[in-house]
Design a binder for these strands. Structure first.
Lengths: 245, 245
DNA sequence: GAGTGGTCTAGACCACTAT
DNA sequence: TAGTGGTCTAGACCACTCT
């Protein structure tokens, strides 16, 4: 590569502008998860920057958990492998003691008019048509979590062509392969409530016992809302741990 | 200050060792919350280091949220002002719309033999004597959270001399003033359960309705466990928000 | 051995804050 | 105006990985 100009607002620090360029390379698909990022040397040559400045930009992106660096190997776009993150909250152990991805069973998948609350979250038109799913997650055939999922129809139409029986235990890889939609991050909100009749039936617990409710809005690299999900799980299996300072 | 040697394992990077020295200055009380840390220049002179190395150590401590830096003013030891953090989880609004510190009422304060589970957490002897408190937190006279608190007797004996009526709405400043004990960080574990009779009475809700239970182990700068606390709050007021990547 | 990132130096210049 | 941190340069040397 030959020397290039750094785009963006010239008043911003150089390392910020370089980070912006690289961030955009990811959000716009020129760099994909797992890809190697040009080395410090290459970057300092193409943009005619001191190595320290390049390093500062990369350190920033590492701290954002967008990149990871490996001494002697290179810098790479981090794979967002956070499907386990919800389940980190639950004590998920198979009977053999190993922790595993719970089984996912799609119980229902239809296109429906999206409720206005969810439309607002997904930033689609109120009353527009969207994909609606019910899904049950089990370990050793014991139901742990019941999920309601909504997907915007325009991005995920191709998902409907895949028979529900052939969808594996993880949805996000399927979103990528079938629809070219990458999930990069998410926001979750956590509450507890008393189990409704329907939830109780699905989770095989008594109506009225406490369940944890986790709402997740999953987004792409550029922050576009992609999937809305409400998960309800047995509170007695739930424990969320956090450090505060 | 004159030139000094950096202590610690000589195989560690210099910036790590400098950070260790400064961290210890905080944990051992030579630098207290709000104090100004020596400037980059001073540090690079006293330890005979390049400014970039000093900066790297300080950046590290900033990223740990131990220090904060202000352009043109200096570097300071961060005040751990996280008493609000538990309550960040709850939708705490006064009737006038402003968010405020909830009122804290100590209902009971005695010395008792500490249960073994809590003794293990606080790293004190099983069956040793400790301070045990019940406390209620209210907003506009509405009870929101019921707390059980345990304190090691050796560190907090002086706390018993303060009449419960004179303890304000925040405990940690009192721990500091009365006992010289600074709380710097904490770990919390979050679960939901059905309200017991006693909890229901305190929170003025129905027995069996879901409550959030938050266990907190508060620690000093050096990680010494200081206070164990179990808080139970109305689940309908509770919502915890988090970002995942 | 070639290439990568990690540490460290020794400055320059700038922007912000206090007085 | 003096002192602070923020940015940036232009290297050197080292430790690690791959082949």
């Amino acid at each position: 590569m030959t020397a290039q100009e750094l785009s963006g607002d010239q008043r911003l620090p150089i390392y910020q502008r370089l980070a912006d360029v690289l961030r955009r390379d990811v959000t716009e698909g020129r760099l994909r998860p797992g890809d190697r990022v040009p080395s410090d040397n290459e970057l300092s040559q193409t943009y005619q920057l001191a190595p320290g400045t390049v390093r500062k930009a990369l350190d920033l992106l590492v701290s954002e958990e967008l990149f990871e660096r490996f001494h002697g190997r290179g810098t790479f776009v981090r794979r967002p492998s956070f499907d386990s993150s919800l389940f980190r909250f639950f004590r998920f152990r198979s009977s053999d003691g190993t922790s595993a991805v719970p089984e996912g069973r799609i119980l229902r998948r239809v296109t429906e008019n999206v409720p206005s609350y969810i439309a607002r979250q997904l930033k689609i038109e109120e009353g527009a048509s969207a994909i609606s799913m019910s899904r049950l997650r089990l370990i050793d055939d014991v139901p742990i979590i019941a999920e309601e999922i909504w997907l915007p129809l325009d991005r995920f139409e191709a998902f409907l062509d895949i028979p529900t029986g052939e969808v594996g235990n993880l949805l996000y890889p399927v979103y990528d392969e079938a629809c070219g939609q990458l999930i990069a991050k998410a926001e979750e909100t956590l509450t507890a409530e008393a189990a409704s009749e329907q939830t109780a039936r699905l989770l095989r617990i008594e109506t009225g016992t406490p369940v944890m409710m986790i709402d997740r809005l999953a987004k792409g690299y550029d922050g576009t809302p992609m999937e809305w999900r409400r998960s309800r799980g047995r509170a007695d299996l739930f424990h969320y741990h956090t450090e505060i300072r």
